[in-house]
Simulated assay, not measured.
Amino acid sequence: MKYVVFILVFFSSERVISQDLISVASTFLNDKNYIEAKSSIDEAFEKTTLVDNPGAWFMKARIYHEILLSNDRNLEQFKQNRNEFVGTIVEAYNKTIALSVRTSNFNVLAKNQIEILWAYGINEGQRLFQAQAFDKAIEAFEIAKITKPSESRAYISTAVSALYAGKYQLAIDNYLAVKDIDDLPRDGYDGLILAKRNLRVSDQELLEVVGDARFDYPNHVPFIIEEVRTLIRLDRLDAAESVLNTAVKRNPNDARLILRQADLFDIIFKDAYINGEPERSERYFEMASTNYERFLNRNALHFAANYNYAVMINEQANRVYTRINLMSNEEYEMRGRESEEIGHDWTRKALPYMEKAWELKPGDTKVMQALEVFYKRLKLDDKLAALNGN
């Protein structure tokens, strides 16, 4: 019986001591003496009697929370592992919630403090991001991530900050983390694709990411174009054409798809000729021409379309000139000049598009070199002199 009394007295006295330490910690907290407040609450938690006390957990959370927000350099010693420190705060608030009834003050206050801590991480991160302090913004967004790990916003914000900081793997990790808890938004896929590109992953790996983006957003034109570009780099021209044909059927008036299809047909036009398929090459030339002209009728000031169309037409001229160069003297006498005129006709057709490209981007080296060739072929000496500043 004496042992039982002793045990009861021991635990009773331990509980009283713990409660006294909590009161002392509360007093120090009110006085903003955070070092002593932390020391008191840590000492109180060395007593096993507090593990089921929501008030004690709440007091611990509040003291640690205030230390986190304080700019006092003397408190930095406690925050050397910032994420771990934030985790301790969140754990204490969650313990408060778990150990108290839903309608109690401790329960309500702890839930409010969780929201406040999360909002602090988000707002501080946004402030630092706007100030272009991207590394510090990442640290701030980590607070929000730890506070509410199932909330996707902090992961997205961390990923964007990591992109701007050049930390591409970190960006990828956070974008992928979003996919584990929520749908990745379109701009999230944009960032994920950009990060993968900057890490110079293989085109096959990039295609897998683009495929996921297309699965979630099948009609988003930029993802369609990204998939086509990647397939082209993988030399999967048939697959690229299939993707584009389907997209154009669904969006027949989308100028971006019309131009991308023209560019693809242009590539196949050249590829088929190299592979000894002249009829296929000519068929794709006609298809590409139709799309280029359709696009330029509505977008006459598009530099790349003008330049690429001119180069494609000039490829037809070059093929004629190449055949002429391979002629014997006898063959040249019979049909050489006639063939030259065919080549010149192709050059004449290409010329206005290349001149428009020059008008849109005067001084472009590639355009200037092309125009010099065109003017010499067609003996347009005045234009050649003007081009060279004479």
Rank of each mutant, 00 (worst) to 15 (best):
M1L: 11
V4S: 15
S13E: 02
R15P: 00
I17L: 13
A25I: 05
D31G: 04
K32T: 07
I35R: 12
A37I: 00
A37H: 02
S39K: 15
F45G: 05
T49V: 05
N53Y: 13
G55E: 15
A56V: 06
K60N: 15
I63T: 11
N74T: 11
L75I: 03
Q77D: 10
Q77H: 07
F78N: 12
E84S: 14
E84K: 11
F85R: 08
I89Q: 08
V90M: 06
A92Q: 10
T96Q: 02
A98S: 13
S100P: 03
N107G: 12
L109A: 13
A110D: 01
I114H: 00
W118F: 15
N123D: 15
L128G: 01
Q132R: 13
I138K: 00
E139V: 09
I143G: 08
A144D: 02
K145G: 03
I146H: 10
T147L: 04
E151R: 12
R153K: 12
Y155F: 15
A159D: 08
V160I: 10
Y168S: 09
Y168K: 08
Q169A: 09
D173M: 10
L176I: 11
L176D: 14
D182T: 01
P185L: 01
R186L: 14
R186W: 11
D187V: 10
Y189D: 06
G191H: 07
I193P: 01
L194D: 13
K196E: 12
K196I: 04
R197E: 13
V201R: 11
V201C: 07
L206T: 03
R214A: 07
R214S: 09
F215H: 11
D216C: 05
H220T: 14
P222D: 06
F223R: 03
V228D: 11
R229H: 12
I232P: 06
I232E: 15
R233D: 12
R233I: 13
L234R: 03
L234I: 01
D235K: 15
R236K: 15
L244S: 06
L244H: 00
A247T: 08
V248L: 15
K249A: 14
A255C: 00
R256W: 05
L257A: 05
I268T: 03
F269L: 02
F269Q: 14
I274S: 09
G276Y: 07
P278V: 12
R280T: 12
R280L: 13
A288R: 03
S289M: 11
S289Q: 14
Y292S: 05
E293G: 01
R294C: 02
R294M: 06
N297R: 13
N299C: 05
L301T: 13
H302I: 04
F303G: 00
N306T: 04
N308E: 15
Y309Q: 02
A310K: 04
M312K: 07
M312H: 09
E315Y: 12
Q316K: 15
R319C: 08
I324S: 09
M327R: 07
M327Y: 06
E330V: 07
R335A: 07
R337K: 14
I342N: 10
I342W: 00
H344R: 15
W346M: 03
K356A: 11
W358I: 00
L371C: 01
L371R: 06
F374D: 05
Y375N: 11
K376F: 08
L380V: 01
L380A: 12
K383S: 05
K383F: 03
A385Y: 09
L387Q: 04
G389F: 01
